[in-house]
Structures are given as structure tokens and as C-alpha cells.
């Protein structure tokens, strides 16, 4: 069974139901321009609205699937599973929230890591699964990121990360905060060694992930219209008691304020990143 075959059932068998058998599931309304879009057409357009160019959120596996070459994919660190070190309980037990998220997404936690190729060049690529607990970073996400980065470090191959996250995972309390320190430390080792790390932000990127691995790329880039920032707009509005300017924290704002190097359209992603990596690795490649 190919890597692609493995992921297809997990996507269609999710909690949202088997879309192929539900007629209304064939159509999707664009949240931005309101156009009603034919789903297969939308998918072949990489989930970008053909009318207004809105980039829909996509899952981690689809993200990596449309990014990497089809061959030579190897998923990494599939053995790490979340545990509830604090016995965290709010209105529900964290354990139950985890099982529910695992059931609905088919993932063990919110990060998928794959070693593969991008236009023939070896890369380690990781992607956040936003539908798993808001793509939040707890121990598993931090640990998987660090292990993926260590493979990149040992084999001196570039690391590429697609973020889509609400931030640190509250239910793992300080353990999740410390994943910020962990991931930043390993990225710093990549930098010291001169192994490229490319951070690609997709809607949304907030909190602890924004304030660590997402903004530490040799290249930081974002998809058009992606929102990214440290504090969420609600928190800022509550603090300063005024309305936020239009477009605040969108990728265009980030570009304007010097936080990112560029905005990359989803359809140009492979091309653009491959081109960047080819230049960055040119002199170090033997």
C-alpha cells in the first residue's frame, strides 16, 4: 500500500462523514467570497477558491501530500503518543478529549512528520494538523518536531515546517510551554550547522508556536491571507479596548512589518520552496 493509499481512508472516514456518499458534501461554500464551489474542482485546485483565491485550511497529510514528491516518503516518529501527565480535567477529561480528537482525525496528535523529497532534493517536512485539538503544541508535537529536526541535523538535509495552530496546549500546562524552548533549541543547532529551516505559516498561527518555531526560519513565509501573531485579536482588543485595524495579523501585514520574507501562493509552494532550498544548499552540497 502506498503512502497516499494509506491516507485516503483516514481522510474520508473521519467524523465529518463519508463525503462521497453525501450529495450536499459535493458542494462547498467559500467562506470569503460566498461562491458555491464543486468540491472535486476545489480539490484539484489545491483547496484554493478559483473565484477569489481564498486558501482553505487543509489537513497535515494533504498538505504534505501536495508538497512532497510522490516517491520516497517515509513517515517519522509514528510511535509517540500523548499522555496526560497532569491528569488534567476541566469540563471533560483531557484523556477523553485526546481520544475524541484521535478518533475524528485518525491522528495520534497534531503533528505529522515525513522524510521525503521535494523536486528530487531530500527534505524533512512536518505539518501541523489543525483539526487535532486546534493544532496545539504539547509534548508529542514538540518531541516529534525535535526528532524530525535531529534527522535533518544528522543527515544535513533541510527542514520544512507548515504551521497551523492555536498555540501551546493548555491541558499539558508547563510541559507544553517548554516545548517552545525545546523546538527553538534544536532549530538553533540547525542554524549553527548551516542546515536550512524553512517555516511556512498557514492559517492560523498563534501563541506559543508563533513565539518559537514558526518565526525562527532562515526563511519565514506565509500563505496569502493567513493570520499569524502572538496574541489573538480578542485578547488584544480586550487589553487595548479598541478595534483592530483591517488586515491586522494577516500575512500581508506580517510582510509589511518585516516579520516574514514572502507570501507564497499554495500553487507555487513546491516551486518556490524548492528554488529557495536549491540556492541555500548550493555551496554546502559536495
Amino acid at each position: 500500500m502506498s503512502w497516499l493509499d494509506k491516507i485516503v481512508p483516514s481522510r474520508s472516514g473521519g467524523a465529518k462523514g463519508n463525503s462521497s456518499r453525501v450529495p450536499e458534501g459535493l458542494w462547498k461554500k467559500c467562506v470569503k467570497c460566498g461562491s458555491v464551489l464543486y468540491r472535486p474542482e476545489l480539490e484539484s485546485n489545491l483547496d484554493v477558491c478559483p473565484k477569489c483565491d481564498h486558501h482553505f485550511r487543509i489537513g497535515a497529510r494533504r498538505r504534505l501530500d501536495i508538497f512532497l514528491d510522490e516517491d520516497n516518503r517515509e513517515e517519522l516518529s509514528t510511535d509517540i503518543v500523548p499522555t496526560d501527565r497532569l491528569n488534567f480535567k476541566d469540563t471533560k477529561k483531557y484523556k477523553d478529549r485526546l481520544s475524541a480528537a484521535q478518533k475524528s482525525t485518525g491522528e495520534k496528535d497534531a503533528l505529522v512528520a515525513v522524510k521525503g523529497k521535494l523536486k528530487g532534493q531530500a527534505v524533512v517536512a512536518v505539518a501541523f494538523e489543525f483539526s487535532f485539538h486546534g493544532g496545539s503544541m504539547g509534548y508529542v508535537v514538540g518531541e516529534k518536531f525535535a526528532r524530525a529536526a535531529h534527522i535533518a541535523l544528522e543527515e544535513n538535509i533541510p527542514l520544512v515546517c507548515f504551521t497551523a495552530t492555536g498555540g501551546a496546549r493548555m491541558q499539558e500546562a508547563l510541559i507544553s510551554l517548554m516545548q517552545m524552548a525545546k523546538t527553538s533549541a534544536v532549530i538553533e543547532r540547525l542554524k549553527q550547522q548551516g542546515t536550512p529551516y524553512i517555516s511556512l505559516m498557514t492559517d492560523p498561527v498563534y501563541g506559543g508556536v508563533s513565539a518559537s518555531l514558526a518565526l525562527l526560519g532562515d526563511i519565514n513565509a506565509a500563505e496569502p491571507g493567513a493570520r499569524a501573531g502572538f496574541a489573538g485579536p480578542n485578547i488584544i482588543e480586550q487589553t487595548i479596548r479598541q478595534k483592530l485595524p483591517k488586515g491586522f495579523q494577516r500575512s500581508e501585514f506580517l510582510l509589511e512589518h518585516g516579520a516574514i520574507d514572502m507570501i507564497i501562493h499554495r500553487k507555487k509552494m513546491r516551486e518556490q520552496v524548492a528554488g529557495l532550498l536549491a540556492k541555500l544548499t548550493y555551496y554546502s552540497a559536495a
Binding site: A211, G229, H257
Partner: peptide, 17 residues
């Protein structure tokens, strides 16, 4: 860290990271 417009404009996330 200060959650405000100026903080975001000057890259509070990047500074922490």
C-alpha cells in the same frame, strides 16, 4: 508579554523565539 498592536507590529513572537 504585552498583547498590543505595537507589540505585534514590532514582532513580539520573533523577539521571544
Amino acid at each position: 508579554a504585552y498583547p498590543g498592536i505595537d507589540s505585534e507590529e514590532r514582532g513580539i513572537s520573533e523577539a521571544i523565539a
